[in-house]
Structure formats: structure tokens, C-alpha cells
Design a protein around this nucleic acid. Structure first.
Lengths: 133, 133
DNA sequence: ACTTGACCTGGAGCCGACTCCAGTTCGTAG
DNA sequence: CTACGAACTGGAGTCGGCTCCAGGTCAAGT
């Protein structure tokens, strides 16, 4: 169905892990590098490039980039050559935020690991005592 | 004011970075290891232990633990000795989630760094060309 | 021809985690 | 004594990011 070059929204949902709802939502929000093509009956036909683009957007989302900023980036790409410095700005800014996020997360991890260690020691010591050592 | 052993909600907000709103919200949600003491006039008086506890909760929140799970953990602590294994379970589960989160974030970071590199190269090559090299 | 399941649209609903509002009270400084 | 900022309560509002609903269309299989 659809020939081997086009994908239905359901197939894209499978391949990306997004729901069909989310896919339509992203489209409405202007998060597709190119207007998605429609087949007869008005059904969306996605290309492999669309899937690749979505996968990158998913990475940006997962790392906390808000939808409006992804839209700005998408618009720059849509406008074509000449605005690479702006795209770079967006990416670098986001990179910095992700870096900070990772630092924070590492701090949290350190605390959690410390607590887990303490509780493990304690629980083990109780267990040992129960066995009569 | 309040003597040197008690802190007002505003002072706790300052020390933790939470808003006074958030502090009342957390209390309502059962995220305080011990019932917060009230002064004359019904005003909350926090202790340093409350602040320490809140700081830990903030770490849990920052790393994505939902409020209801923090509440469960808090309740266990409130119940006192004997449930350390359950506390440990919650912490270990969360630790694992944070680990996965960090892996994901690192993947995102790798992609972003790759793209930043490519755009930097490109932008630099354009700049160099403009200078006539 | 009919059924079934995937798809369409616009708009409403939901969830988590706050955030803010209205109306009131408290307590210290001038 | 008054004025001010900070605190109090319960409940409503906000925001982001989906998720779902109603009501309808389409297309492939039997």
C-alpha cells in the first residue's frame, strides 16, 4: 500500500514511536521540514526524510527543547540556505542547556547513589544480624 | 525574628529556591517528613531539618520523580524504622530511571554536538571564503 | 455490496506541577 | 495607631504537550 516510497501516518507512528495524534499535532505546530504530501482522499503520505527529520525533532524534544523553539529551527531550515548562523545559535544554546541538565542530573544521581549505598548497608546489616552473625 | 532556630516560609523559600506557593503546595501534598510547626498567629515555622529534607526532595523532583512517589517515600520515612527495604526499593527504581535518562540525554547530546560541529564547519568555511581565502 | 479498520478535521479534555487570586490576619517600624 | 509587608486559606487558573472525541471519509478484503 502506498507504494514503497510513501508511508502512512500509522507507519510513521510505528517507526518513530510517536502516536498518530502526536504526528498531526507536530504538523499543526509547524514541525515538519516540508509540507507533508497528501494522497487521494486527503491522507498524509510521509517520506523517509520526514521520518528522519521527526527522529531528530524527537531527540530535541527528549532533551527538553520546547515545541516553539523546534518550530523556529524548523522554519529556518524551511527557509533554506543563508541562515545557518541562526540555526547554529539555536543548537548551541540548546547544547548548553542540555549540558547543564546533565550536570544537575549527575548531582541528583550522586545523592541517590549515596542514599542507596547507605540503605543497602543498613538493610544488609539487619539481615546479617537476623542470621545470627 | 522567630529566634535563631526557626525559619519563616519566606526564609525557607530563599534558602531552597522554591516559591512560598510551592512550599505550601508541597506541604499539602504530604512532602514534609514531619508536620511543620506553627507559631502564634498560625504561621509556619520551619527547622533546618525541614530545609535539608526539602533540599533532598528538590533533588528527587529535579531528576523527575513525580510528587506522588516522593509522598510515598516521605510516608515511609514518617512511619519510622522498619521499612528501610521499601525505601531502598523506591530509591533503586528511581536510580535506574535516572540512569536511563542520562543515557538518553547523552544520545541527544551526541547528536546535537555532531550537528553543531557540522554547522560550525560550514559557517566558518563561508566566513573564510568571504575574506577571500 | 458491505464490513472493517485506518484515516480525516476541529475542538475539547487531561495531567502534572505549580502559580495566582481574593479576602483576611499578623506584627513590626515609624 | 496606622501602614506596610509577609503570612494565612481554599480554590481557581495556567502552561505545555499531548490525547481523545464526535462525526464523517476512504479503501481493501470477502
Amino acid at each position: 500500500m502506498l507504494g514503497r516510497m510513501g508511508l502512512s501516518i500509522g507507519q510513521v507512528a510505528e517507526r518513530t514511536g510517536l502516536s498518530v495524534h502526536a504526528l498531526r499535532f507536530y504538523e499543526k505546530e509547524g514541525i515538519l521540514a516540508h509540507q507533508v504530501h497528501r494522497g487521494p482522499g486527503g491522507r498524509r503520505i510521509y517520506t523517509q526524510q520526514d521520518v528522519d527529520w521527526l527522529r531528530m525533532c524527537i531527540m530535541l524534544r527528549m532533551s527538553g527543547m520546547p515545541v516553539p523553539e523546534i518550530r523556529r529551527y524548523t522554519e529556518l531550515v524551511r527557509q533554506g540556505d543563508g541562515n545557518e548562523p541562526q540555526r547554529l545559535d539555536i543548537l548551541k544554546e540548546h547544547q548548553e542547556r542540555v549540558r547543564q541538565q546533565m550536570v544537575q542530573l549527575q548531582e541528583c544521581m550522586d545523592l541517590i547513589t549515596y542514599k542507596v549505598g547507605k540503605y543497602e548497608d543498613y538493610v544488609n546489616s539487619i539481615a546479617a544480624r537476623a542470621v545470627g552473625q
